[in-house]
Design a protein around this nucleic acid. Structure first.
Lengths: 344, 344
DNA sequence: CTGTTAGCGCGTTCAG
DNA sequence: CTGAACGCGCTAACAG
């Protein structure tokens, strides 16, 4: 009754061969313009839709992309996944998700499943793979699958890369505060010193200001002792208070850290942003802080979109030999926690 | 060279017919125990792995499950998705994700893609479908796909449901505070009065205490005026302060609201939890508050696991005619923001 | 330009 | 119990 109609059906209806129809649709073989028209019309009439799945069996590629991402409790990758899917959907591609345990051994299984499903392209998110997996990724290329990664260095000329400009983000946020007349700006780091801090230092130096970083190296308070970076930065600031209490602005190396700063300042009755400005990175908690936190928004949504686009591009125009590398910028989201410096 | 070996290969190797091998593997037709052994051995030897994709073309079902979820910026569903995938992977099923815009019209496209991909089962998350879509879901059943939903009422006897026990959660959290000797417990609601509030009221009454709810109906401060529930609850409490300042405990109808409460209490120099306890629901921001917030953890991870299991169960034992309905419990996560009541 | 002949890898009839 | 035959829906190499 509601049976799906196939190429055969439209071939019968037109007294043609199914393969001719196939060519008319794909445009691969040579078909007369007239029959192409007829086929197109019959397609409309009968409401035919090509079965990509069946087609996948013979071509070896299904209209599906995949994301491989690390198992984490945070769910931080949600915007990436969402925009990746949205972009894929525009091109009528589905999106399969594979989680891998960092340091786990299920990447192998994942790669098997990718192949089995005839996935056309896959993005490996930062944390899902390490350099030791690179050989496997390169081997995966032989199956004709499109590949890219985020936050990884160059792996292969046929693997694209998406990176984030942490340094520029650090620079811009610092510059923003400098332009608000702040001079005494403290950066609260983490033992893992990312490019964000480098950007901060660069900005401070280029404006002739003295960088002050706490929490980067041998502070008595270590983030590894905490399950929460917020509490870490709170305790850190508490301990280093004498050293930094004259600061008119704090930058947390991420929003968790920035929140710890805010908590401590409130406790010290330092008004934000009247007496002191606070800013962070990632833009995760803007809506749950009072005042709302100024933050450099991590371009995850954009990343998802670009990743899918890169895959699609490789799939449709399969030129080989050059890896494109995208460097995505953060975006300053200026909210209530930062303001013009005022002397007291 | 590295060619995938097929049933044909193992048939050749055993001088058998391909279809006999197929039967030996599936156990459907009748095959001698001896040849089954031989086949199993050859499978090991040659490293054969069944191609589920190809098999999907003939059976009409691929070893893939799907989740349909609403496009939202929050990414709250991440734990659900992650555990769903983890469960699916155990059974060698893949997971396809489809986002739909609430009130958008791409659900139709999504259902088409589900069918095209020969998805074996699908979970529709709360917010992705509304009662007006039910006819489409029921029609989808005809394709032999397994279906369940979360936070939806009964739809069809062949569609399972997962629900969350909001009332019990409200009750338990309130009871927890009562057992800490609190008597004056205020519930900060939202215009949408969920079961959480009902549970609160029920608990208060059953302990002979007077429920006090603010923010539920005609308060001058309306959540719709805010993009952030945190700011809403902060302002609300500010305005109603005279009425509730004697409370020894506050319950926010979710963690966003609870954070607004915390912010205001800090500003009023009410010490948490010494002078006043605060608790919330969902357990989203535990690690970024100081003190850490006591909260009823929303069983999203469990939901993901159960949803996948329900699908798998329907797929493998295809009995029809009874819809199972799961009611999942929240879990009290007792942290620093709640403490025994002490008179001042 | 069209149709023929072969598959892709597997499942489900039927005879033998 | 085994094998032969047909089909899932589509693509790709040839001939006509």
């Amino acid at each position: 009754m509601d049976k799906n109609i196939t190429m055969q059906d439209i071939a019968d209806h037109l007294k043609l061969d199914r393969t001719t129809v196939s060519k008319a649709i794909s445009g691969k073989g040579s078909v007369s313009a007239k029959t192409i028209k007829r086929v197109q019309q019959a397609i409309e009439e009968l409401g035919y839709r090509k079965d990509h799945f069946a087609s996948g069996l013979v071509t070896g590629k299904n209209t599906v992309l995949a994301i491989v991402l690390p198992e984490m409790k945070s769910g931080i990758y949600a915007p990436f996944v969402q925009n990746f899917q949205r972009t894929a959907r525009k091109h009528h591609y589905g999106v399969i998700l594979y989680y891998v345990e960092p340091q786990g051994d299920n990447l192998t299984l994942t790669l098997e499943m990718l192949k089995q499903q005839r996935v056309s392209g896959v993005t490996f998110l930062s944390g899902a793979t390490s350099p030791s997996d690179d050989d496997n990724l390169i081997r995966l290329l032989d199956t004709g699958i499109a590949i890219n990664t985020t936050t990884r260095g160059f792996i292969h000329e046929d693997i694209d890369g998406i990176r984030y400009n942490h340094i520029k983000a650090g620079f811009e946020l610092t510059e923003h505060l400098v332009k608000l007349q702040h001079k005494n700006i403290v950066f609260v780091a983490n033992t893992y010193s990312s490019g964000r801090m480098d950007g901060y230092k660069k900005a401070m130096q280029s404006y002739g200001l003295q960088p002050v970083v706490i929490g980067d190296k041998q502070s008595a308070v270590k983030p590894s002792d905490y399950q929460s970076l917020t509490k870490f930065s709170y305790d850190l600031l508490m301990q280093e208070w004498d050293r930094v209490k004259d600061a008119s602005a704090f930058i947390g190396c991420n929003d968790d850290v920035a929140l710890g700063i805010m908590h401590l300042l409130k406790e010290k009755n330092v008004s934000i942003p009247k007496d002191c400005s606070v800013a962070g990175f990632d833009d995760l908690y803007a809506d749950v802080t009072i005042p709302q936190l100024t933050s450099m928004r991590f371009p995850l949504s954009e990343g998802g979109e670009k990743a899918a686009e890169l895959l699609l591009k490789r799939i449709h125009a399969n030129e080989k030999g050059f890896s494109t590398s995208l460097l995505l910028d953060y975006e300053l989201i200026d909210r209530e926690s930062t303001a013009m410096y005022t002397a007291h």
